[in-house]
Amino acid sequence: MKTRLIVFAFMAMLVIAASCQNDGQIEFNRFYSNGSVVYQAHCQNCHGAKGEGLQGLIPSLTDSIYLKNNKNTLACQLNSGLKGKITILNKEFEGEMPASKLSPLEIAQVLTYVTNSFGNKLGTINTDRVNTDLAKCK
């Protein structure tokens, strides 16, 4: 009897806690956790488990200012690849990132993960955003 009451109270708490999260938070969590899987499969070998990059060869993903300033073009950078000089955390890079073969959904997931990990906090980048950005790629 007593245990059933405890279990019930616990379930009720879970339900309340879940409904307290607004839709935005739920969307973020979904994109973020799927994004971490995409990151491990498609980015981690180059950019590292902690987004640390590799010396002067591959830039880190910890430059929040770069990510913020380029938020609208990150989808294009992944979709078409990136080549040429860029400055990340005051260090110059001139490498080449191959074009990824990710779908707009996966791009949205991995970008949500990257721009909210490694000390970054830029919020959700959802699939609509990515599709809009991809339509404007140069």
């Binding site: 070998n45 180059c46 590292g48 590799l54 060869l57 591959i58 191959p98």
Partner: peptide, 10 residues
């Protein structure tokens, strides 16, 4: 090499 070489040299 886009795959394992960055990991090896890291």
């Amino acid at each position: 090499c886009p795959t394992i070489c960055p990991v090896m040299h890291r």
